[in-house]
Computed example of a mutant assay.
Amino acid sequence: MATPRYLEIKQQLLDEINGKPVNSPIASERELAIRFDASRMTVRNAVNELVEEGVLYRDKNKGTFVADRKLIKKNLTSELLQEHDAMDFSVIYFSVKKAEEMAPYLEIKETDYMLRVVRVNKINHRPLSVEEVYFIRSLVSDDEINHLKELLNLNSYIEQGTVTQRFHPMIVPAQYANQLKIKITTPIIMAESTIRSKNGKPLVYIKTFYNPFEKTIEITS
């Protein structure tokens, strides 16, 4: 069976990328489509896989760039539970608002309400990550909102459900660079985690922006 065209393009891009320094831009989809005599969708599929694998990252409105693959260490161990045991944190923002663009991640309606909490996670007083934590409001009592520190101990959710994660290389969001004590041009890894109940319903959705000088990402399978 012939190799799919997008995989051929992916391999050619990978060969080119291996010789480029971190943060180097790659050509636009339009330019790549012309170069490879392929449709933009075919090129996009190749680039998307390289982004998902941590070889490339996208910076909105600027383009696609070579990622620092040293930020990702692949193995078969999960640290999420252990990590939350070891962390101290401070809440820097929380609100109850309509789900809107977060609705698909929580599998609720855009007009339903969610609780959004932003915290800085620290180990030995050093910033490990900034975390956006999203709860379905109807599943959280007023008393739990009044005791955020207990609610944000996610161990009970993790132990009773299942966790799926995706990892995205990117430039640190400007609003979190100061919290992480890194430069605004620093490449980082953002991890998306969805904690689901045993019946598969989302309970918590989390976006974790890691400080690359404090944390090597462990990708699980």
Results as ranks from 00 to 15, higher is better:
residue 199 N to E: 14
residue 40 R to G: 10
residue 108 I to S: 04
residue 124 N to W: 10
residue 4 P to K: 14
residue 52 E to G: 12
residue 34 I to C: 07
residue 19 G to I: 08
residue 180 L to T: 02
residue 127 P to E: 03
residue 59 D to H: 05
residue 42 T to A: 14
residue 76 L to I: 14
residue 104 P to N: 06
residue 46 A to G: 14
residue 183 K to H: 13
residue 111 T to Q: 08
residue 105 Y to I: 04
residue 72 I to N: 06
residue 24 S to C: 12
residue 70 K to H: 14
residue 212 P to Q: 12
residue 27 A to H: 08
residue 203 L to F: 01
residue 83 E to H: 07
residue 203 L to S: 10
residue 182 I to K: 04
residue 90 S to P: 02
residue 101 E to H: 11
residue 220 T to D: 11
residue 80 L to D: 04
residue 184 I to L: 01
residue 117 V to W: 00
residue 42 T to F: 09
residue 84 H to W: 04
residue 182 I to D: 02
residue 215 K to A: 14
residue 130 V to S: 01
residue 77 T to P: 09
residue 212 P to Y: 09
residue 57 Y to N: 02
residue 44 R to W: 14
residue 3 T to S: 08
residue 208 T to K: 07
residue 115 L to E: 00
residue 164 T to Q: 03
residue 111 T to Y: 07
residue 115 L to K: 04
residue 142 D to L: 10
residue 174 A to C: 07
residue 91 V to F: 06
residue 126 R to M: 10
residue 1 M to C: 08
residue 188 I to D: 01
residue 140 V to F: 05
residue 135 F to K: 06
residue 208 T to I: 11
residue 57 Y to K: 05
residue 153 N to P: 10
residue 120 V to Q: 00
residue 35 R to W: 07
residue 18 N to T: 13
residue 68 D to Y: 05
residue 117 V to L: 01
residue 208 T to Q: 11
residue 215 K to I: 12
residue 186 T to C: 09
residue 117 V to F: 04
residue 52 E to V: 13
residue 212 P to I: 05
residue 76 L to A: 14
residue 121 N to T: 04
residue 177 A to Y: 01
residue 218 E to Y: 12
residue 60 K to P: 03
residue 151 L to T: 03
residue 155 N to I: 00
residue 184 I to P: 00
residue 61 N to V: 09
residue 139 L to T: 00
residue 2 A to R: 12
residue 84 H to M: 09
residue 134 Y to R: 10
residue 198 K to D: 00
residue 105 Y to C: 10
residue 43 V to F: 05
residue 215 K to P: 07
residue 187 P to Q: 05
residue 36 F to Y: 15
residue 145 I to A: 02
residue 185 T to R: 05
residue 75 N to Y: 12
residue 100 E to R: 10
residue 72 I to M: 11
residue 59 D to P: 00
residue 102 M to W: 03
